[in-house]
Computed example of a mutant assay.
Amino acid sequence: MVTRLRVTVFPKAGVLDPQGKAIERALGGLGFAGVREVRVGKVMLVDVEESDPARARAMGEEMARRLLANTVIESFTVEIA
């Protein structure tokens, strides 16, 4: 059985996010005055051959720690999609 994982990666709090700042400024320029902060991240969908949701999630977490996220400056979450 195949399980689809959703791995979401974002810069950690306090880490500079130039893309987020650019979008934040652009939204303000378009008249969206209430925007306080924008953080830009990435979402990956990963299909794994594993029927046990707990083991599939553990695989996704290991993938994120080893390759998908730079854990020094990024945090991640892994969910069953």
Rank of each mutant, 00 (worst) to 15 (best):
E24A: 05
A64L: 05
K42G: 08
V35T: 14
A54Q: 14
L27W: 06
A58V: 04
A54N: 09
E62S: 12
R65D: 08
R6H: 07
R6L: 12
F32Q: 06
L16C: 06
E24K: 12
M1V: 12
R55H: 06
T8I: 14
A33G: 12
R36C: 05
T3R: 11
S75D: 14
R65P: 02
P53G: 06
A13D: 13
V2E: 12
E49K: 10
V7C: 01
V78H: 07
E61W: 00
R4D: 11
A69G: 00
R39T: 14
K21A: 13
I73A: 07
I23D: 02
R25S: 08
I73K: 06
L16P: 03
M59R: 03
E62Y: 11
R65C: 03
G41I: 01
V40F: 02
I23F: 00
T71R: 09
V38S: 07
A58F: 01
F76V: 04
I73E: 03
R57C: 08
R65Q: 13
R4N: 10
R57V: 15
F76E: 00
S51G: 15
A22Q: 08
R65I: 01
A13W: 02
Q19Y: 01
G60D: 07
L45W: 14
G20R: 06
V35W: 00
M59V: 06
E79Y: 00
G41E: 01
L27S: 05
E79D: 12
A54I: 03
N70E: 03
G60T: 08
V9G: 04
S75N: 12
R65F: 01
A22R: 09
T77E: 10
E24M: 07
T71Q: 09
E50M: 09
R66C: 07
R6S: 11
V48N: 04
G60W: 11
T8G: 03
F32L: 14
S75V: 07
R4G: 06
E50H: 06
V46P: 09
E37R: 15
K12N: 05
T8K: 12
F10Q: 02
S75M: 07
D17T: 11
R25M: 12
E37W: 00
F32M: 09
L45A: 11
E50W: 06
I73L: 11
T77R: 10
A56M: 05
A56P: 06
M44G: 09
L45I: 15
Q19R: 13
R39Y: 01
V38A: 04
R36K: 15
V2H: 12
T71C: 12
K42T: 02
R4V: 13
T77W: 00
G14F: 05
A13S: 10
G60K: 07
G29N: 14
F10T: 02
R25C: 05
A13K: 11
E79Q: 10
I80Q: 10
V7N: 03
E37T: 09
E62H: 14
P18H: 07
V15F: 01
E61C: 03
L67T: 02
L68S: 04
G60H: 10
A81R: 04
V72H: 08
L67G: 09
D17H: 00
T8Q: 10
M44P: 04
L5H: 10
V48Q: 05
T77P: 02
E50V: 07
R4F: 11
V48E: 06
T77G: 12
